[in-house]
Design a binder for these strands. Sequence first.
DNA 1: CAGAAAATGATATATTATAACACTTCATCA
DNA 2: TGATGAAGTGTTATAATATATCATTTTCTG
Lengths: 158, 158
Amino acid sequence: MSDLFPKKGHDHDRCVHSALAQAEKVCDAENARFTDMRRKVFTLIWQSHKAVTAYELLDALTAEGQRVQPPTVYRALEFLTELGLVHRIESLNAYFGCDRPDCEHLGQYFICTDCGRVAEAVNEEMSNAVRKAAIGVGFTIQATTVEIKGLCHDCATH
Amino acid sequence: MSDLFPKKGHDHDRCVHSALAQAEKVCDAENARFTDMRRKVFTLIWQSHKAVTAYELLDALTAEGQRVQPPTVYRALEFLTELGLVHRIESLNAYFGCDRPDCEHLGQYFICTDCGRVAEAVNEEMSNAVRKAAIGVGFTIQATTVEIKGLCHDCATH
DNA sequence: CAGAAAATGATATATTATAACACTTCATCA
DNA sequence: TGATGAAGTGTTATAATATATCATTTTCTG
Ligand SMILES: [Zn+2]
Ligand SMILES: [Zn+2]
Ligand SMILES: [Zn+2]
Ligand SMILES: [Zn+2]
């Protein structure tokens, strides 16, 4: 069994650090500005491996002393999702940080209903099955979302 | 290529009629009451093969002379979705009628971004791929949603 | 028919998201 | 370097989606 969800007690600061570094790189490559606000929102999203709602981010910013309004958060989220640094989980109305922003995004997510963590899958077999199903019915794919809810290995076994 | 979306100019009254008959049967089998309000909401959802929002239903009911409040619509939707007569499309916050309420629901949907129609797929290969991916990462599935957006065959070729 | 359960009505409010316009910051180039 | 336009953020208002709570009505059961 491959590791999809990070191990308990992993060095999460390292996740955040690495995510920030990758984000810098992506922004740089895209000539996009990784402004203070965007960095703050991005960092807040990366506080955990859970998906976080726009208003949770708003509250967190307020708690930090920043008094921002919804549009500010939604603009940052729009920027980050368009660059693929953050993904939106439709069934949760929530956002979480992509840990491989440089890879192709297949839109496949495992969502643990117990611990709340989200993990992105990159599974060719699923993509192929979707593609094949589409061809079979004459459908031209623009975007696909696969949201799989259940129990992560940790939660299922503890 | 198999037909997934109904043909243009098909006899939609027949879709509605058949859907109502199936719904009656399901409710009967489940000892669930297919009340006037539930039937009205169900019928409104079946006015097209598109997904429809709760507030569109509310407006339609109002236009019919019924002055109902949001909870009334949401209750009907909850009832119908729990019985599998209606499905919720997460990425649209909208609901559409299941045309095979007696089959297993795999949660696979094709959504045409041009004409707005939704079609439910029942594709074992996709399900198997999802199941296999989950096993591969030690994930216990509770529910899966596959929402595929793009162009239906009609819209792609016209 | 009485009493309990289920469904709906009604009011209020919570949650999620966007429109519109003003102001500030930043990149660019004359 | 400083005018200029584009990009980003602030601010206010409001739209769109969804639920909590309690009152009333309808239906079922005995
Ligand atoms: Zn981590
Ligand atoms: Zn978990
Ligand atoms: Zn039809
Ligand atoms: Zn179409």
